[in-house]
């Protein structure tokens, strides 16, 4: 319980920071983004909560010492939001975070802890890492592979004439490290079988995909990918 209490401040800081950042962001976000992102803003909150939930398990562990990181973090991040990030934000922050954390710097990517590491360490570390390095957990390269995957699917997607703006279905793609598609599962139907099939066909025709070579990164991001198909460029 005592260990748990020790989390209160870092946690409070983390929540406060997220709230501030979200506020800043939404205040500045004037026009709708070119691509709608359904899965970003809200899941962020959800993720925090799930991280909080398992705390009791972690609490008994005696080695819950790496407080410095969480303490340092609010400062780092408070500085972060303004301007200096403009150029290369990702490398900048982790450099500060890495030494503070007890995790050994990962050899291939010294600038950030590999995801597996983060996942493998116990909960405090995960929380600290999560809180201190927020996005830097996500290797930069993921974005470009993701963009490639998306572009390939877009270029293969022919909507049937019965498709309408506002229809939406989710497919779960299972990939293997060579980028081949092992299976496509319809996890949420649009209610229009022809629409669902057009999405599935787009994915199957787009495969195989370019995926990161790093197995850890692949496992974390590309082994299973959920794609939502919700057209907004149709005439109707």
């Amino acid at each position: 319980m005592a260990g748990l209490r020790a989390y209160l401040w870092p946690l409070a800081w983390a929540l406060l920071f997220h709230a501030v950042a979200l506020g800043l962001f939404s205040a500045n976000w004037s026009s709708p983004p070119a691509l709608r992102q359904s899965s970003t803003a809200e899941p962020m909150m959800a993720e925090l909560l799930t991280l909080v939930a398992p705390a009791p398990k972690a609490a008994p562990k005696p080695k819950a010492k790496p407080r410095p990181a969480p303490k340092a973090k609010p400062k780092t991040q408070k500085k972060a939001p303004p301007a200096p990030l403009a150029e290369a934000p990702a490398p900048a922050r982790p450099e500060k975070a890495a030494p503070e954390r007890n995790a050994p710097p990962a050899a291939p990517e010294p600038e950030k802890p590999s995801l597996q590491e983060v996942l493998g360490t116990d909960f405090e570390d995960a929380l600290a890492a999560e809180a201190s390095s927020d996005a830097s957990d996500r290797p930069e390269a993921v974005g470009s592979y993701e963009a490639d995957l998306m572009a390939r699917i877009v270029s293969q997607w022919s909507r049937p004439p019965s498709a309408r703006n506002g229809m939406s279905c989710d497919l779960r793609l299972a990939l293997v490290p060579t980028g081949e598609l092992v299976s496509v599962t319809l996890v949420r139907s649009s209610g229009n079988a022809a629409f669902d099939r057009s999405a599935e066909l787009a994915v199957r025709r787009a495969a195989p995909f370019q995926v990161p070579e790093d197995p850890a990164v692949f496992d974390a991001y590309f082994r299973s990918v959920t794609v939502t198909f919700s057209p907004n460029d149709l005439r109707y």
Partner: peptide, 9 residues
Amino acid sequence: ELAIEITQG
């Protein structure tokens, strides 16, 4: 996992 939204075809 990755969650992607495709809005164009």
